[in-house]
Design a protein around this nucleic acid. Structure first.
Length: 503
RNA sequence: GGUCACGUCGUCUAGUGGUUAGGACUCCUGGUUUUCAUCCAGGCAAUCGCGGGUUCGACUCCCGCCGUGAUCACCA
């Protein structure tokens, strides 16, 4: 190692020491949602990135439920969150169901811990019980707004505060000053004194606010990277002050830009119709595609690749390539990506992918063998698994003869009823002569038919295709016929002849 | 109003002083002997928010402005 030759010894020692410390420090990240409803795709990304970093560095990914807001608590939301994470493949190492050495993982079960840390602040003279009635605070706030100023409670800090006891909100006592920190995404930042206030850390109900709880939790759980939306950026002054007052080292801060709604410039939220992430599962979006899509919304590895598996992402993800600007959510790209993933997974293991289509077929009582055949000829035109429902119904039950579809067809509308019947009869004769009803033989027979009838492919194949399916689109004709089977195919062609004779 | 962040095709983005500003989605055209889709080939589409400056040369550096968003809760 020639670096030793040209480098002073103390620098070598320093490098070694630094390396030892780095290898000793285990990466711990977390996703900390509050159980107030489903997780929409705007939030999901802030679970993906910490997961990727944890896995990349052989660290720990924690799921922590921030359930201190009892008013907004929604029954069953925790299960919904867990379900979403499992679906997309983000298995947490510690958290609900799993347990772990840093539990409990529900904030309501950690109340004693917060109180204990809050008391440290009281003892240090850095927290006080707030005796001001809320109506009074509202007046202060109004005053600030009238003066076109940001509201700061500390401007109204009472001189004499009572001893803190249950039922009273507890406020942090700010020591406003310039506070510097480094954001992993946005770079070096300075928080001015006016960003720091006497914020409430314990509510009147005895539970902590996010502002306090997350700091205590992250510290006691050993979290090394905090990933969260950039809406927390303006609060950094307060957080830095609390870390300092508590004598805590700061973790790495990774603030993420917002995901924007499809229209307008607002961040994507439930009001913009942001669906629950798992609703996409019901639509037939693959978790692979969703993970790929969200990870690349606001991040890229600098190459022109588009398709990334979870393993690829773990290998390639890097915080320093996270975008600074918000990214617009574009469902079209998600759907395209999903189509790509369907094709890729089919190529890797067709049966395994088929097993995942169970919930998406139209009603039928066909066996797996038959359905797998259908899937094999139609998978490459699916955008979502949900398309199976609308694209395969004619494989299960005979379609109703709809002559208007033939009459409105560009190539077929010029044909007379007589010609139509004639073509169909010739087709039936030819197809009936096939001994072994395979796709290849069908292909040959159809080609021969093309020559013997002298019709254009658009007429001949178009008519047969419509007659057996009465669907706007279907797989290649010979494939469709081969899966449909001899009896069913011929019967459907006959049915069309009958329909025309009836008139 | 204060504070903070952001600003390259409609959208996601590459790009760190010299490029015909590249790729992807969408859209359009042609081909793959039916349709739809896939796939392939091609096309439309960005005066790099605006105005100054530095420089031989700026999307890239500096200053000012504008626009957009976030935040100012006993919500997270």
């Amino acid at each position: 190692m020639h670096i030793f030759k040209s480098t002073p010894i103390y620098e070598v020692l320093f490098t070694c020491a630094k390396y030892a410390i780095l290898t000793d420090m285990k990466t711990v990240t977390r996703f900390a949602p509050s159980p107030t409803g489903y997780i929409h795709i705007g939030n999901l990304r802030s679970a993906i990135y910490p997961y990727l970093i944890a896995k990349q560095e052989q660290g720990t990914f924690i799921l922590r439920i921030e359930d201190t807001d009892r008013a907004r608590y929604v029954e069953g939301a925790t299960e919904l969150i867990e379900d979403t994470l499992k679906w997309i493949g983000l298995d947490w190492d510690e958290g609900p169901e799993k347990g772990g050495e840093n539990g409990p993982y529900f904030q309501t079960q950690r109340q004693e811990i917060y109180i204990e840390w809050a008391k440290k602040l009281i003892t240090a003279g850095r927290a006080y019980a707030d005796p001001t009635p809320s109506e009074q605070i509202a007046k202060y706030r109004e005053e600030a707004s009238k003066n076109k100023q940001a509201f700061l409670y500390r401007n109204y800090r009472p001189d004499n505060t009572p001893e803190w006891e249950p039922g009273m909100p507890l406020r942090f006592k700010a020591e406003p000053k310039e506070r510097k920190y480094h954001d992993e995404v946005f770079g070096d930042k300075v928080m001015l004194p006016e960003t720091q206030d006497d914020i409430i850390i314990i509510k009147a109900d005895g539970l902590p606010t996010y502002n306090f709880a997350h700091i205590v939790d992250d510290a006691t759980m050993g979290v090394t990277h905090i990933f969260r939306g950039q809406e927390y950026l303006p609060s950094m002054g307060n957080y830095l002050a609390i870390y300092e007052a508590l004598g805590l080292d700061t973790p790495k801060f990774v603030h993420l830009p917002h995901i924007l709604a499809p229209s307008g410039n607002k961040k994507l939220g439930k009001r913009d119709g942001a669906k629950s992430a798992v609703d996409y599962r019901a639509d037939g979006i693959l978790p692979e595609a969703m993970l790929n899509f969200l990870a690349c919304l606001g991040w890229n590895d600098g190459t022109e690749d588009e398709l990334y598996s979870k393993e690829d992402l773990i290998k390639k993800f890097s915080i320093d390539r996270i975008q600074h600007a918000g990214a617009r959510y574009d469902e079209q790209k998600l759907i395209w990506l999903n189509g790509q993933w369907i094709r890729r997974l089919f190529a890797e293991d067709a049966k395994a992918l088929y097993e995942r289509t169970k919930d998406f077929w139209p009603e039928n009582n066909a066996d797996d063998d038959y359905k797998f055949k259908i899937f094999s000829i139609i998978y490459d035109r699916l955008k979502t698994l949900g398309d199976l429902k609308t694209m395969t119904s004619y494989f299960f039950e005979d379609p109703t003869v709809d002559m208007s579809m033939i009459e409105s067809n560009k190539a077929l509308k010029k044909l007379s009823e007589h010609e139509i019947q004639d073509i169909l009869r010739q087709a039936i004769d030819k197809l009936r002569s096939i001994e072994d009803w395979t796709a290849d033989n069908l292909q040959n027979a159809l080609n021969e038919l093309l020559e013997s009838t002298g019709h254009k492919p658009a007429e001949l194949f178009g008519l047969i295709r419509l007659s057996v399916s009465f669907a706007p689109f279907s797989p290649a004709l010979h494939d469709t016929l081969s899966v449909l089977g001899r009896e069913r195919s011929l019967a459907r062609l006959n049915a069309v002849i009958t329909a025309y004779s009836r008139d």
